[in-house]
């Protein structure tokens, strides 16, 4: 059910915006749209965005959610920023491998490893 509430939990630390999903299932078209809009607003607000997206809470996602992540990655690249993904469940990581999106996203096992990769 789409709502005015944020679909994301966000914190900013040491110049990195760390993002977690509120939803365990990122499937609903309206929610995915909202997530995309929220992430776009974060990217737009920074001259050189450094985003870390944690999938720690996520059990399921659809190809539409992958599409939103690709759009986010393209926006960040266009601004010379950096995107890291972390804490992806093995079953979901397999989806990234099948789609070969593990080749365009920098994926880390843990949030800690992802944070230190920003340098």
């Amino acid at each position: 059910m789409p709502s005015d509430e944020s679909r994301l939990r966000i914190k900013n630390q040491d110049g990195v915006t760390q993002i977690e999903f509120i939803d365990r299932n990122i499937l609903d078209e309206a929610n995915i749209q909202q997530i995309g809009d929220e992430l776009a607003a974060i990217i737009d607000a920074s001259s050189s965005p450094r985003l870390l997206i944690s999938f720690a809470n996520v059990d399921h996602l659809s190809s539409a959610a992958l599409g939103t992540l690709i759009t986010v990655n393209n926006k960040i690249k266009a601004k010379g920023g950096m995107l890291r993904l972390a804490d992806i469940d093995p079953q979901i990581y397999e989806v990234f491998v099948i789609t070969k999106l593990n080749r365009i996203f920098e994926i880390h096992d843990t949030v800690e490893n992802a944070v230190s990769s920003f340098g």
Binding site: S63, I70, T99, L101
Partner: peptide
Amino acid sequence: PTLDENLEIPSGRGLLL
């Protein structure tokens, strides 16, 4: 969608999955 030239296109992965 797994070809290099299509990897950054946001749609078209449902059937592949």
